[in-house]
Every structure is written in structure tokens, then in C-alpha cells.
Computed example of a mutant assay.
Amino acid sequence: MLTSRRTGPPILPKEGMGSNLDPSSPHPLPSWLSQEDLSYYASKFDKSGFTGPLNYYRNLNLNWELTTAWTGAKVKVHVKFITGDLDLVYNSLGTKQYIESSGFKRDVPNLEEVVIQEGVVHFNNQEAAEDITNHIYEFIKKF
């Protein structure tokens, strides 16, 4: 899932994540993810488990209830939005249309720029680190 280039919805085998991986034939890591990075992340999940990150998704209904007070709220700070054109979230139902329509600008009135990085997935800060750094630097130096 971390390195998928598919823009459609994730399709997981009913046996669970990782059940279709052949340990004798590991998938090569992408250029932006080193074995050292992967080992570091894995060590953190070894220590704390993966339950915390999954609980957000298990709790979606309550999350919506807890944030209803902010329904219709506007993001009033200056914003530069950056995503990858292959990002699963960007390509999920209605998101791309919302970002590209006047709806996003309506809800984020100080939206200065939307950057869609070609060929980049969800972890754009890792996959296109130098590009992201340059975008952030150019954005904050205006202030």
C-alpha cells in the first residue's frame, strides 16, 4: 500500500494486508524509501503497535460527531495546498473535484496555490522531498 501507484480504491485481500506477499520474493523499495527508513518506521510500530493509527478509522463516526461544531468553518490562514496526482486521498470520491472547484477556495478563502505533483503518491514529503522543501520555503519567505 505504501508504494502503490494505483489511483483507484484500495482492494485488500480478505485474508488481510500482507497475506498476498511472497516473503521469498520481496518487492523492491522505491527510490525515495531506504531500508534504513523502513526499519526505523517498523521499529516504532514494533514498540507501540498499529492499533493507534487504525483506531482513527475505526472511530470515523465519532470523529464526525466530535467535529460537527466546526461544520462550515473557514480556514482563514494563508494556505498552499500540495498533493500528488496519484495520492489515494486526492483521487477518492469527490475530493479532486472539490479541490479543483470553487468549493475548496470557498472554504479556504486565503488559499494561495494548489500544487498537484505529477507521479507522486501520498507521502510526498518523502517521495519528492526537495520539491516539497522548495514549495514550503517559497511560501513562508513571503511572510
Rank of each mutant, 00 (worst) to 15 (best):
L60H: 08
L93E: 09
P30T: 09
V77F: 07
K105N: 07
I136E: 00
D107K: 01
S4K: 09
I136N: 00
P23M: 00
V115D: 01
P10K: 11
K96R: 05
N91Y: 02
L12I: 13
S102N: 11
R58I: 04
L60A: 09
I140H: 00
N91E: 03
S25G: 07
L62C: 15
T95H: 08
L21M: 09
K141H: 02
G16F: 01
V89P: 04
S43Y: 03
F104L: 05
N55P: 04
H27M: 10
Y98P: 08
Y40F: 13
E113F: 00
V89H: 03
N20F: 07
I82S: 00
G119R: 07
L88D: 02
F123P: 14
L111F: 06
D37T: 15
P53W: 06
T7E: 01
P9M: 12
N55A: 11
Q35H: 12
L111C: 12
G72H: 09
N110Y: 09
S19M: 06
I140Q: 00
P23T: 01
G52L: 13
F139V: 00
N59Y: 14
R106W: 08
R58G: 06
E36M: 09
S4L: 10
K47N: 12
Q126T: 15
W70L: 10
F104K: 03
V77R: 09
F139S: 01
R58D: 05
T133R: 03
H78S: 10
Y41A: 10
K14N: 10
Y57R: 03
N134Y: 02
K47T: 05
T51F: 15
N63F: 15
W32D: 06
L21S: 08
T83S: 09
A128M: 04
P13D: 02
D46Y: 01
N124P: 04
S31G: 09
F143M: 00
L88I: 06
L54R: 12
T83D: 08
T71H: 14
G72E: 06
N110M: 11
V120S: 08
V121P: 11
N63Q: 12
W64C: 10
V77C: 12
L62T: 15
E65A: 14
Q35S: 12
L12Y: 13
G84Y: 00
K44S: 03
D37C: 11
Y98Q: 09
S48D: 14
P28D: 04
G8M: 08
D22N: 05
L2E: 11
P13F: 02
I99S: 05
P13E: 02
H135N: 08
A128H: 04
N134C: 04
S39L: 02
N125M: 14
P10I: 12
F123C: 15
S102P: 11
L93V: 03
S101I: 04
L66W: 12
I82T: 01
S31T: 11
W32L: 11
K74Y: 10
M1T: 10
V114R: 05
R58K: 13
P53L: 07
L66N: 15
V79T: 08
R6W: 14
F123A: 15
W64H: 13
E127Y: 03
T67K: 14
F50S: 15
N61C: 13
K96S: 01
A73T: 06
I140M: 00
Y57F: 07
T83V: 09
K74R: 15
Y41C: 07
G103D: 10
K80D: 01
S39G: 02
E130W: 07
